[in-house]
Design a protein around this nucleic acid. Structure first.
Lengths: 164, 164
DNA sequence: CTTGGAAAGTCAACAAGGCTGACGTAAATT
DNA sequence: AATTTACGTCAGCCTTGTTGACTTTCCAAG
């Protein structure tokens, strides 16, 4: 077993270990999105709507530009999703009072209900995984994921974290 | 800090902690796919081609049905991807000798080269994340991801693992 | 040997959700 | 007054997923 001068194992850096990590990400992400996808399948919405709803819930009053930064899509793509959510009365968009060019986004009661349904399902799976793996594993899980992000995304992630 | 009778922390099971895990998955997956996406952007290929190439590399001689199980898409969807890869000489498809209905898939030399390029990039990121987080964290990372998979996907994942 | 069903492939049509490019409007900034 | 910013929108394209219908090939059981 390979050892560093400091004595830690380096076995975890073999190509084979890295490939397993890659495959674990692939299969786990499928599970991660499976429940919301199933719920949204019945309605006219998809994963893109879920993401918008999630981050509007997370940062009520956020602007369109901010959402664009977080989601990393074009405004045309986001707009298509946002328009249907507003039309269907799940999201409310208000002109900014200090800067009237900005639109501040909030979930309506109806939007809150759907958010709840989606996040209940997703959190149930996450909770089961956390419980099965234990607190120590959860810490490692978050550390590796954070290290895997692009720096700009890590900034966004940490900005969101501050609230919690 | 909430404690169980056994004494372990339960803080990691709060809704807020679960939400952070969800967001970590979202942002990390973006990083995870960013490098291959960038490489494939130049060519006529996309993420679907990458997945096919990855699993054919991983299980040379695998059949179309097996690939369908692993990828979880329809045969029509996979076939479109596979056809272009075969036409372009990245993948070789051979009739089975024991069961001639089956097609056994292999990467050609050209296919190996692209696989190498893609996985080098993806492994480099994974390696950096692993190194930054350390072996203990990596173990936890894999435990949580594995617990997050659907049982059927976990079976597929573990079947792949055996080889390594 | 025949037939039923599995494995693979194909065609057509469609939808979600990305993208680019161009354009318009209102509001803020310089 | 001119420029920039934030947002919305139209049009068109691509990838990648879907369903449904159909064919060919082939194994295996009756």
């Amino acid at each position: 077993m390979a050892e560093t001068p400091g004595g830690e194992s380096l076995l975890f850096l073999t190509d084979e270990q890295l490939r397993k990590g890659i495959e674990a990400m692939f299969f786990a992400y499928r599970g991660f999105t499976a429940d919301p996808d199933r719920i949204l399948g019945g309605m006219d919405y998809g994963r893109a709507h879920h993401r918008a709803i999630h981050f509007i819930h997370r940062s009520p009053g956020t602007t369109v530009s901010n959402l664009l930064l977080i989601l990393g899509v074009t405004k045309q793509s986001l707009n298509r999703v946002l328009r249907t959510l507003i039309e269907d009365g799940l999201v409310r968009s208000e002109k900014g009072k200090v800067d009237a060019r900005e639109r501040h986004l909030h979930l309506t009661d109806k939007g809150q209900m759907l958010e709840r349904e989606l996040s209940d399902a997703q959190r149930a799976r996450m909770r089961a995984a956390y419980r099965a793996a234990g607190p120590q594993a959860v810490q490692g899980f978050r550390q590796v994921l954070e290290a895997m992000m692009d720096p700009e995304m890590r900034r966004q992630y940490n900005r969101l974290k501050e609230g919690g």
